[in-house]
Simulated assay, not measured.
Amino acid sequence: MYEFATFQEARFFRRSVTGAKKHPWKAWASLELIGPLSPRTAFLTHAVGTAEQIQRLIEAGHRPSGSAWQLLRQFAGNIPGALDSERVEPVRVISAARTEAAVHQVSDIADRRAAATRAWSRLNDVEQLFGTAPHSTGS
């Protein structure tokens, strides 16, 4: 099925699916576009996922690998407030990543939705489905 970073993204997807009977692929098109903040929101989403997985391993009595801790440290080093000392704490990474993601995700979804709307209005049905050659912007 589909995974969504935010409740707003899931709600938009559901609304799009129910309103896209003629072109059902339009429902997920904006989720596939990349906006200016998409790489950062994806980074934060993956940081949360990695930290949650490490936390689950610890809670289940398993020892996470050194590679897992190294990956989490790399994530934490790029998230303000996620790394305070030499020891990486999954709970702290999750909290810091979610705090920053809350700032960026709404704008990211809006940017991708606006880009999808522009594409839908400028491209014919075949171009929307299969793409088109790049066009000069005239700059």
Rank of each mutant, 00 (worst) to 15 (best):
S136I: 07
A116F: 04
S107H: 11
P64T: 02
L71W: 06
F12G: 00
A60Y: 08
T41Y: 05
R98S: 13
K21V: 11
P80Y: 07
S107I: 10
P24M: 04
A116P: 00
H23I: 03
V93F: 01
F13K: 02
V91D: 12
D125V: 13
T117A: 15
T6D: 06
K21R: 15
V88G: 04
P90H: 01
W120H: 14
W28Q: 10
R15G: 03
D84M: 09
V48C: 07
L129S: 07
E9S: 07
Q128E: 05
A102R: 13
P39F: 11
E9V: 03
S30V: 06
Q105R: 09
E86G: 13
A60T: 08
F4P: 01
L83D: 00
V126L: 07
Q53A: 13
G61H: 09
T132Q: 14
H62N: 11
L129E: 05
W25Y: 15
G131K: 11
R15Y: 04
V106E: 14
W25P: 00
K26F: 05
N78M: 09
G35N: 02
A5Y: 09
R92S: 04
T6R: 06
K21W: 08
A68N: 01
S107G: 09
N124D: 15
A10C: 07
P36S: 13
S139Q: 10
S38L: 09
V93K: 00
V91S: 15
R92G: 02
L33V: 06
L83F: 03
A5V: 15
H23D: 14
A27D: 02
T41R: 13
V17N: 02
Y2W: 12
T99P: 03
V103R: 12
I94P: 00
A114I: 08
L129I: 05
F13P: 01
T18F: 10
T137C: 06
F12A: 07
S30I: 02
V48Y: 04
A51R: 00
S121G: 03
P64C: 07
G77H: 05
T45I: 09
H23C: 07
A116G: 05
E9K: 10
A82Y: 03
T117V: 10
R118I: 06
V93G: 01
R113A: 08
I109A: 05
A101C: 07
S67V: 12
P24C: 06
A10R: 13
Q105N: 12
S38E: 05
S121F: 04
S121P: 03
A10Y: 11
R63Y: 06
A42D: 15
A116H: 06
S16Y: 00
V103W: 08
T137D: 14
